[in-house]
Amino acid sequence: MKANRPMPNIPPFLVPNRIESPRLVLRTFRPDDWPSLHEHYSDAESTRFTFRRALSEGDSWYAMANMVGHWHLRGYGPYAVEEKATGNVLGTVGLWYPKDWPEPEIKWALTRRYWGKGYASEAARAVQAMAKEHLPDVSLISFIHAENAASIALALAVGATFEKEMPFRGATWHIYRHPR
């Protein structure tokens, strides 16, 4: 296999691969982001409603690779959330639409030590604004486990409204619709 051969049939990104907010840079992932993401994914409390378990190093790497691949398959995807002041990667926020999801969503997953500091809402609002400009015809949701009170509070804080609940992967999940 040739190392620098371009990949065929890869669509261009539909949205910017980098956006900014007052305290944050949201950008596509780099290989050196993996250890910061693993801090989130290896924390059983952080992954209780998504993966339902702490992830191994290998599983965390696969999760990051999955998000990188999402950009190439959909033309958009989750961003690495980097704090401007320190350069630390805090987690991920961005657009997400796996094959079994009901609709495209704004997802968020920050490392626990960054919870409660307003980073997730700041990043989610930046993604809302970016999507309004670049994907104006796409209605976005956040798809949240019914028991995930913190994510529900965040969805409401950024203006999303409860739309309905539905069964998904053996549990009850809620759809919160973001403003257009």
Results as ranks from 00 to 15, higher is better:
Asn148Pro: 07
Gln128Phe: 01
Ser46Asp: 07
Gln128Gly: 06
Ala120His: 03
Glu57Pro: 07
Pro78His: 08
Thr111Ser: 15
Glu82Ala: 06
Ser139Ala: 09
Thr50Gln: 14
Ala150Trp: 10
Leu73Gly: 12
Lys117Asn: 11
Ile152Lys: 15
Lys132Trp: 11
Tyr79Thr: 01
Pro104Leu: 04
Gly116Lys: 03
His70Asn: 08
Ile141Arg: 02
Val127Ile: 08
Lys99Asn: 12
His134Glu: 06
Lys132His: 09
Ala80Glu: 01
Asp137Val: 00
Leu135Gln: 02
Lys84Leu: 12
Met130Phe: 03
Gly75Val: 10
Ala85Trp: 08
Tyr119Asp: 02
Leu110Gly: 01
Leu95Tyr: 04
Gly91Ala: 02
Ala153Lys: 14
Trp108Leu: 13
Lys107Glu: 13
Glu147Thr: 05
Glu57Ser: 11
Leu110Phe: 04
Ala65Val: 10
Pro102Asp: 08
Gly87Trp: 07
Glu122Leu: 05
Glu147Phe: 10
Ala126Lys: 03
Glu57Asp: 14
Tyr97Gly: 00
Asp59Met: 15
Trp115Asp: 06
Ala149His: 09
Leu140Asn: 00
Ala54Cys: 05
Leu55Thr: 04
Thr92Asp: 10
Thr47His: 00
Arg125Phe: 07
Ile106Asn: 02
Gly75His: 07
Met67Pro: 01
Leu154Lys: 02
Ile152Pro: 06
Leu154Arg: 06
Glu82Gly: 04
Asp59Arg: 10
Glu133His: 12
Ala109Tyr: 05
Arg125Glu: 12
His72Phe: 13
Gly58Phe: 08
Leu110Asp: 01
Ala129Phe: 01
Lys99Leu: 13
Ile152Trp: 04
Lys132Glu: 12
Leu140Pro: 02
Thr50Ile: 15
His72Asn: 13
Arg113Lys: 15
Lys99Ile: 14
Gly94Leu: 03
Ala123Met: 02
Val93Ser: 00
Glu133Arg: 14
Phe51Ser: 14
Trp61Val: 13
Asn148Ile: 07
Tyr79Trp: 13
Tyr62Arg: 14
Ser139Phe: 00
Val81Arg: 03
Tyr119Glu: 03
Thr92Phe: 13
Ala155Cys: 10
Tyr76Lys: 03
Val89Pro: 01
Ala146Leu: 08
Arg125Lys: 13
Asn66Asp: 14
Val93Ile: 11
Asn88Ile: 04
Tyr119Met: 03
Val138Cys: 10
His72Gln: 14
Thr111Arg: 14
Lys84Trp: 09
Ser151Tyr: 04
Arg48Trp: 11
Ser56Tyr: 08
His70Ser: 10
Ala85Ile: 09
Thr92Tyr: 11
Pro78Val: 10
Arg48Phe: 12
Leu156Cys: 12
Gly75Asp: 07
Trp101Ile: 03
Arg52Val: 09
Ala155His: 06
Pro136Cys: 06
Pro98Gly: 06
Trp96Arg: 05
Gly116Val: 07
Asn66Ala: 15
Pro78Cys: 11
Gly58Cys: 05
Trp61Asp: 00
His145Ser: 10
Leu135Asn: 04
Ala146His: 15
Glu122Tyr: 01
Val138Ser: 03
Ala44Leu: 09
Leu140Glu: 02
Lys107Asp: 12
His145Asn: 15
Asp43Leu: 08
Ile141Met: 14
Asp137Glu: 09
Glu57Asn: 09
Glu103Ile: 01
Thr86Trp: 05
Leu90Lys: 01
Asp137Gln: 13
Lys99Pro: 08
